[in-house]
């Protein structure tokens, strides 16, 4: 059992949870992920490591309560425990030696982009964080991100905070203004990563993206997380989760991620009906 030592809400949909898992905390690095399971009946859910504290033996994850399984985890309170917490999995990011980097986060992707920016900032790199949200209510980690970046450029789809527009608009402005990045790191919804990669390809800037495919074991065993990179099949869990954005087949990733949408919708519906029934009985 893995105790939840801290849990807080970052916005209406998003929770941050810190879990006591000393063995995982001892090894975790930016870019890696964990797999967790709430109870005996639950799915195995992969979540990227958002932060870790080797001394306290804790690992922090940030998740959006969108489906039944993430809602189930969202129900757990501080002091309660997760049944399983496995990791660290995947290959760590290669961040050493980078001097000037654009770290791009879209929505929940900021949770994963943040530790990368933090690591780079601590290593003395110049970090421009370009982050995008649908609106001001959904913004997470603003202060944290500001603290680890040289410039924080905030974009919202509706202009309710920062500039109105997409992260690609801000990145394009930077590139047009002649900013020379060693690397662009883009983490967010697949469609955002796709358009960032298309843009940076025009400017010849190396771009790393982080995949979030469906997976079960996280150790290379199921092949459910396969993605096509440079025309070859790669397993996101062992070969990734980070890949060269100019090589990834994003359209395939988007299609594969929709494989269980009907089942997920039904499961979430059933779960919410049960919750309401329980509430009425009380």
């Amino acid at each position: 059992m893995f105790k939840i030592v801290k849990k807080e809400s970052l916005n209406a949909q998003t929770d941050r949870m810190t879990v006591l898992a000393p063995l995982v905390a001892a090894k975790a690095l930016p870019g890696q992920f964990v797999i967790l399971r709430a109870d005996e009946y639950a799915e195995r859910i992969p979540l990227t490591v958002a932060d870790y504290d080797r001394e306290a033996g804790t690992v922090t994850v940030i998740f959006q309560k969108v489906g039944m399984s993430t809602q189930k985890i969202g129900e757990l309170k501080e002091g309660e425990s997760l049944l399983d917490f496995v990791g660290p999995l995947g290959t760590a990011s290669h961040l050493d030696g980078l001097r000037r980097v654009a770290v791009i986060g879209g929505g929940l992707g900021c949770a994963i982009a943040y530790p990368q920016a933090k690591y780079l900032h601590a290593a003395g790199a110049q970090v421009d964080m370009i982050v995008g949200f649908r609106n001001a209510d959904l913004i997470i980690l603003e202060e944290e991100m500001r603290a680890v970046s040289t410039n924080l450029i905030m974009m919202t789809d509706d202009g309710s905070k920062g500039e109105r527009g997409f992260v690609t608009d801000a990145l394009k402005a930077q590139l047009e203004a002649g900013v020379e990045y060693d690397e662009v790191i883009a983490i967010g919804p697949p469609v955002m990563m796709k358009f960032v990669s298309l843009l940076t390809k025009q400017y010849g800037v190396k771009t790393i993206v982080s995949m979030n495919p469906i997976m079960i074991d996280g150790t290379g065993m199921c092949g459910g997380c396969r993605v096509t990179v440079g025309g070859k099949i790669k397993f996101a869990c062992v070969d990734g989760p980070e890949f060269d954005g100019h090589e990834v087949d994003f359209d395939e990733l988007i299609r594969r991620n929709s494989a269980y949408v009907p089942q997920e919708r039904e499961a979430a519906h059933r779960y919410n009906c049960n919750l309401m029934k329980q509430a009425e009985e009380k």
Binding site: E43, R44, I216, D217, M221, C222, G223, G224, R226, T228, I233, E252, R255, R256, S258, A259
Partner: peptide
Amino acid sequence: NSCGVYSANEFLTRVNLM
């Protein structure tokens, strides 16, 4: 890589373990 295409490992793990 179409949806609905599984490795036997993935299919059997979903059924037997999960």
